[in-house]
Design a protein around this nucleic acid. Structure first.
Length: 875
RNA sequence: GGAGGCAUAGCUCAGCUGGUCAGAGUGCCUGCUUCACACGCAGGAGGUCGCAGGUUCGAGCCCCGCUGUCUCCACCA
C-alpha cells in the first residue's frame, strides 16, 4: 500500500503497477507440470477490429475468476488468449478506409490488399489485448495466438484436407445467402430475420393454350424474371387440371410449366406459387425435384443482370417498382395487399440478403453433428445452464450443410487448386507443383477464403499445437471450461464441439459456462446505433477494474442477461473502499513485527466466533466456485466482509487492541490478520488488484496473493458451540441498540447494564463488548433478580435492564412489552401447532423436527422473561 | 408455427438438491463530528414471492393451466 494514508482507495494508483508486478513475476505463464493437474480455458478470441465492450468485460471477468481460483488451488491453470481475424468485419473496415482514399480493393489487387490488411492488424490488433489487461486478465500472454498465425493456418488446412478426403467437404452449385453489400456468401447462422412491412402482389399468369389464367401472389415481384415454373399442391382440386399445362410468363414471355409439389400450402395465398429456383431456397428445392432450369437474374450487388432483359442494370428495388408498374399496365396485377413478412439481413452490415445460386464449398454436417449431439447427451460436455442443451440439440438435429466459402480476401484461402489443363480439383496441404491427374503444370488456387468460424472452431486445439502431438496439447487438452455468451452457441460453441470430436476424438471442453448479455440500465441491448453502450474502460478509469469486475460478477446467474447501472458500480466501488479501510485499520494496529499468522492457543470467544464463520465461508465460496455459482460466491464474500468482519469483528476487537492487556491485543491482531488475509485470498479472483495491494502490505509468506495457496476448510476451526453462544451476545447488543434507538437515546449517553440470564458465561466474557457497542457504563451479569424502574430488553437468552428512569414511561413500556409478548405468543402457537401435527413429526427429517423443538424452547424462555418483566412493571 | 427465459420490497436483482428463505444493493425515514471508512455507523418502514389450481406433513422453490413480457429457432411464396 504505497499510499497508505489515503482515506479512500485509489485504483488508478494501484492497478497498472500491480499488473506489471504480475507480468514481471511471470505468474500468468502456465507450463506442463506433471505434479499438477491442468486447468485450461481458451479465451473466445475477440475480433482484431474490436474494442472492449461490456460483453467482453463480463466474459473475461468470469474467465479470470475461474482461472485465478484454480491457479490458487494448485492447478496448472492456463488461460490462452488471442484474437480472431474476423474476415468479413475486418475486410469491411479496410475497404471502408480505402474508400476514403478513393480506392477499391479490385483496383489494388489481392496482394496489395492483404498487405494493407496485415498492416491494419499490426496497428489495431493489439488494442483490444491491451484493454483486456486493464481488466486484470491473467492470461498467459506468452501463448497469445491469432487465428491467422502460422500454426492456426496450418490447422485450418489440415482440417480442410482431411474433411475433403473423407468426403465431408464438397463444392457445388447451391442456393446460398448472399450479401450484396459485403459481396460474399454467408452461412445460414449469419442471417438475421426481422419482420418488415411489405406488400403481397397478386398476379395473373395466362395459360399458353389460351384457356384462362392462374393467379398467384409474391412479395418479391422482381424475381419473376427468373421464374421457371408455377407450382400447385398435387391434392388441390382447383388446379388439378392445370398441372402439366404451361403459362406465359408476363413481361418476359417465357413459356413455363405448371407443376405439382406438396411444398405448396393450399390454404395460403391463392394456392399457387411462382417458382424461382435461382433466388429462393424452397424454390430451388422444387426446381431440383422437377428438373427446372435455374435462371440467375441478379448480379453480385443485387442488380438485375443480362437475363433480365429491359430491366438489366436496375437495382433490385428499382426493378421491383418498374416491374410492378409494367405488370399493372399489362393487366397482370390483380391486387396489392399490405403484408408484414420476415426479411433476412446480413448480421454484419444489415443489408437484406439475396438468396442466390452459386458455386460454393460446403461441409456435410450430418455425420459431424451426430457425435456432437451424443457428447452433450452423455455428459462429456456439460452446458451451464442446462436448458441450453435443448436449444443445442434442436439446432444440431436440424442442421443443414455449412457454407464455408466466402468471396473475401482476408482470411484463410481455400486450399484447393484447379488444373488449367484438365480441370481437376486438387485439395492439398501445400501448393501442388503439378496436376496429379494429367501432370499439367498450370494450376490456379481457388479465389475464396473460409468462413471465419471455420478457424475459430479449431481454437481449443489449434492454439495448443494441433495437428502436432505437442506436450502442451497432451497436457492441457481437452480444456476444462469454455466461458462465452449464449448468443454464439451456434456460431462457435457447437462448431467447436463437432470439430474437436472429429479431429481430436475428444470433446474440446468439459463444461460450457454460458452467460447472458449486458444490457443498459433500462434493459436495452447496448449498441453502437443506440449509443447506449457503457465503455468498460471509462468505468475502470472512474471506479476501478475491481469495482467493474465485482459488479459484473455480482447478482449474475448463468444464462441470464443483466442490467448495468451506474449505481451498481458505485456500490462495488464503495465495497472496495470498505475493504481498503479495513486494511488501513489493521495496518494502524499492527506492530510491524508480526509473522505470517499462526493462531494463538488462547482464543477469545469472539475469535472462535469469527473463525467459525470464516471457516464456513471458505467451504461455501470454494463449493460455489467449483459449481460455477460465481454470483453466490461473491455475495457471500460481500456479506461476510462487510456485515460480519467489519461491522462486528473489527468493532469488537477495538477493546482488546486499545486495552492494557498486551497478550489479548496480540491475540486480536493475529486473528484479525488470519481471517482478513484468508478472506482476501477468497476475494482475490473477483477483485485481484485491491487484494494484491493489501495482501502485500500485510504479514504474508510468498511473493503474490495470486500464487498463494487457496484457503482450506479446517475442522479444527469449527467452534460451533462457542460461536452459537457468542451469537447470543451479538443478539443482545442488537436488541439493546434497537431499544435505545427507539427511545432516541444517543450513544453518548451511557447507562449501567444488568444482564439476567441462565447462561451467564458468554455475557460475562462479553462485558467489554457491551461497553463499546451497547453504550453500557458498567455491566453486571447475574442469574436472577430484577432492576426496578429500568427499561427491560428481552432476547431469547437473557433479559437486560437499563436504568434510565427519566426516560422510562411506564405506560409506554407496558405497551411495548405487551406487544412483544403477543408476538412471541403467536410464534409459540405457530411452532406448537406444527409440532402437534403427527404427520410433521413422523415424516419430516429428525433434524427439522428438532430445530422446531429448539425454537419452541427459545420462544418459551422469551415469553417467561417478558411476563416477568411485565409483572415487575406492575409492582 | 415451434422452443425457452423472466414475473420476489419504490427500483435493479439473489434465493443452490422443497423445511429460520422472505433476502441484498439502491432509494426512502430517524438518529450519529463512535479514535478504518460519510464511498461511513446505528436503527427503521416496505413484499398474500404474477393469477388460479395440484402434489406434499410442509412450496418463491416441484407439476398443470392462464396472463404479461423478452428471446431463440423455423420462414407460407
Amino acid at each position: 500500500m504505497a499510499n497508505e494514508l489515503a482515506k479512500a482507495y485509489d485504483p488508478r494508483e494501484v492497478e497498472d503497477r500491480i499488473y506489471q508486478f504480475w507480468l514481471d513475476g511471470g505468474y500468468f505463464h502456465a507450463q506442463v507440470d506433471q505434479g499438477k493437474k491442468p486447468y485450461t480455458i481458451v479465451m473466445p478470441p475477440p475480433n482484431i477490429t474490436g474494442q472492449l465492450h461490456m460483453g467482453h468485460a463480463l466474459d473475461n471477468t468470469l474467465q479470470d475468476i475461474l482461472i485465478r481460483f484454480r491457479r490458487m488451488q494448485g492447478y496448472a491453470a492456463l488461460w490462452v488468449p488471442g484474437t480472431d481475424h474476423a474476415s468479413i468485419a475486418t475486410e469491411a473496415k479496410i475497404v471502408e478506409a480505402m474508400r476514403a482514399e478513393g480506392l477499391t480493393k479490385e483496383q489494388i489487387g489481392r496482394e496489395k490488399f492483404l498487405e494493407r490488411a496485415w498492416e491494419w492488424k499490426e496497428q489495431y490488433g493489439g488494442r483490444i489485448v491491451s484493454q483486456l489487461r486493464k481488466m486484470g486478465s491473467s492470461c498467459d500472454w506468452q501463448r497469445e495466438r491469432f487465428t491467422m498465425d502460422e500454426g492456426c493456418s496450418r490447422a485450418v488446412r489440415e482440417v480442410f484436407v482431411r474433411l475433403y478426403e473423407k468426403g465431408l467437404i464438397y463444392r457445388g452449385e447451391r442456393i446460398i445467402n448472399w450479401c450484396p453489400h459485403c459481396r460474399t456468401s454467408i452461412s445460414d447462422a449469419e442471417v438475421v430475420y426481422s419482420e418488415q412491412d411489405g406488400h403481397f402482389w397478386h398476379l395473373r399468369y395466362p395459360l399458353c393454350d389460351g384457356s384462362g389464367e392462374i393467379q398467384l401472389a409474391t412479395t418479391r415481384p422482381e424475381t419473376l424474371l427468373g421464374d421457371t415454373a408455377v407450382a400447385v399442391h398435387p391434392d388441390d382440386a382447383r388446379y388439378r387440371d392445370l398441372v402439366g399445362k404451361t403459362v406465359r410468363l408476363p413481361l418476359v414471355g417465357r413459356e413455363i410449366p405448371i407443376v405439382a409439389d406438396d411444398y405448396v400450402e393450399m390454404d395460403f395465398g391463392t394456392g399457387a406459387v411462382k417458382i424461382t429456383p435461382a433466388h429462393d431456397p424452397n424454390d430451388f428445392e422444387v426446381g431440383l425435384r422437377h428438373n427446372l432450369p435455374v435462371i440467375n437474374v441478379m448480379t453480385e450487388d443485387a442488380k438485375i443482370n443480362e437475363n433480365g432483359g429491359k430491366y438489366a442494370g436496375m437495382d433490385r428495388y428499382e426493378a421491383r417498382a418498374a416491374i410492378v408498374a409494367d405488370l399493372e399496365a399489362g393487366g397482370f396485377l390483380v391486387k396489392t395487399e399490405d403484408m408484414k413478412h420476415n426479411v433476412g439481413a446480413c448480421y454484419r452490415c444489415n443489408s437484406t440478403v439475396e438468396p442466390r445460386v452459386s458455386k460454393q464449398w460446403f461441409v456435410r454436417m450430418e455425420p459431424l453433428a451426430k457425435p456432437a449431439i451424443e457428447a452433450v447427451r452423455n455428459g462429456d460436455v456439460r452446458l451451464i445452464p442446462q436448458r441450453f442443451e435443448k436449444i443445442y440439440f434442436n439446432w444440431m438435429e436440424n442442421i443443414r450443410d455449412w457454407c464455408i466459402s466466402r468471396q473475401l480476401w482476408w482470411g484463410h484461402r481455400i486450399p484447393a487448386w484447379y488444373c488449367d489443363d484438365c480441370g481437376e480439383t486438387v485439395v492439398a496441404r501445400s501448393e501442388p507443383q503439378s496436376c496429379p491427374k494429367c501432370g499439367g503444370a498450370h494450376l490456379h488456387q481457388d479465389e475464396d477464403t473460409l468462413d471465419t468460424w471455420f478457424s475459430s472452431a479449431l481454437w481449443p486445439f489449434s492454439t495448443l499445437g494441433w495437428p502436432d502431438e505437442t506436450l502442451d496439447l497432451k497436457y492441457f487438452y481437452p480444456t476444462a471450461t469454455l466461458v462465452t455468451g449464449y448468443d454464439i452457441l451456434f456460431f462457435w460453441v457447437a462448431r467447436m464441439i463437432f470439430s474437436g470430436l472429429a479431429y481430436t476424438d475428444k470433446a474440446p471442453f468439459q463444461t460450457v459456462l454460458l452467460h447472458g448479455i449486458v444490457r443498459d440500465a433500462n434493459g436495452l441491448k447496448m449498441s453502437k446505433s443506440l449509443g447506449n453502450g457503457v465503455d468498460p474502460l471509462v468505468e475502470i478509469e472512474t471506479y476501478g477494474a475491481d469495482a467493474l469486475r465485482f459488479t459484473l460478477a455480482t447478482g449474475n446467474s448463468p444464462g441470464n442477461d443483466m442490467r448495468y447501472s451506474p449505481e451498481r458500480v458505485q456500490a462495488s466501488r464503495n465495497f472496495a473502499n470498505k475493504i481498503w479501510n479495513a486494511a488501513r485499520f489493521l495496518r494502524m494496529n499492527l506492530t510491524g513485527t508480526e509473522q505470517p499468522p499462526h493462531l494463538p492457543p488462547q482464543l477469545a470467544q469472539e475469535d472462535r466466533w469469527i473463525l467459525t464463520k470464516y471457516n464456513r465461508l471458505v467451504a461455501d465460496v470454494t463449493e460455489n466456485l467449483e459449481k460455477y455459482e460465481l454470483g453466490l460466491a461473491v455475495q457471500k464474500l460481500y456479506d461476510f466482509i462487510w456485515d460480519v468482519f467489519c461491522d462486528w469483528y473489527i468493532e469488537i476487537c477495538k477493546s482488546r487492541l486499545n486495552g492494557d492487556d498486551p497478550a489479548a491485543a496480540d491475540c486480536a491482531r493475529t486473528v484479525l490478520v488470519y481471517v482478513f488475509s484468508g478472506t482476501l485470498q477468497l476475494l482475490h479472483p473477483f477483485m485481484p488488484f485491491l487484494t494484491e495491494e493489501i495482501w502485500q502490505a500485510l504479514p504474508h509468506k510468498g511473493t503474490s496473493i495470486m500464487v498463494s495457496r487457496w484457503p482450506k476448510y479446517e475442522e479444527t476451526l469449527n467452534f460451533s458451540r462457542e460461536a452459537q453462544a457468542f451469537e447470543k451476545v451479538v443478539d443482545a447488543v442488537r436488541a439493546i441498540r434497537n431499544c435505545r434507538a427507539q427511545k432516541n437515546v444517543p450513544p453518548s449517553r451511557k447507562a449501567s447494564l444488568t444482564v439476567v440470564t441462565a447462561t451467564p458465561e458468554p455475557f460475562r466474557e462479553g462485558e467489554a463488548l457491551f461497553r463499546r457497542l451497547a453504550s453500557a457504563s458498567s455491566v453486571t451479569v447475574c442469574t436472577q433478580g430484577t432492576v426496578e424502574g429500568a427499561v427491560c430488553v428481552v432476547t431469547d437468552a437473557a433479559a437486560f435492564y437499563i436504568p434510565m428512569n427519566e426516560l422510562v414511561d411506564v405506560a409506554a413500556e407496558r405497551k411495548r412489552l405487551t406487544k412483544e409478548l403477543e408476538a412471541a405468543q403467536d410464534d409459540r402457537a405457530f411452532v406448537e401447532k406444527k409440532l402437534a401435527n403427527e404427520n410433521f413429526v413422523s415424516r419430516a427429517p429428525a433434524a427439522v423436527v428438532q430445530a422446531q423443538r429448539d425454537q419452541l424452547a427459545k420462544v418459551c424462555d422469551r415469553i417467561a422473561m417478558l411476563e416477568r418483566s411485565l409483572e415487575e412493571l406492575n409492582v
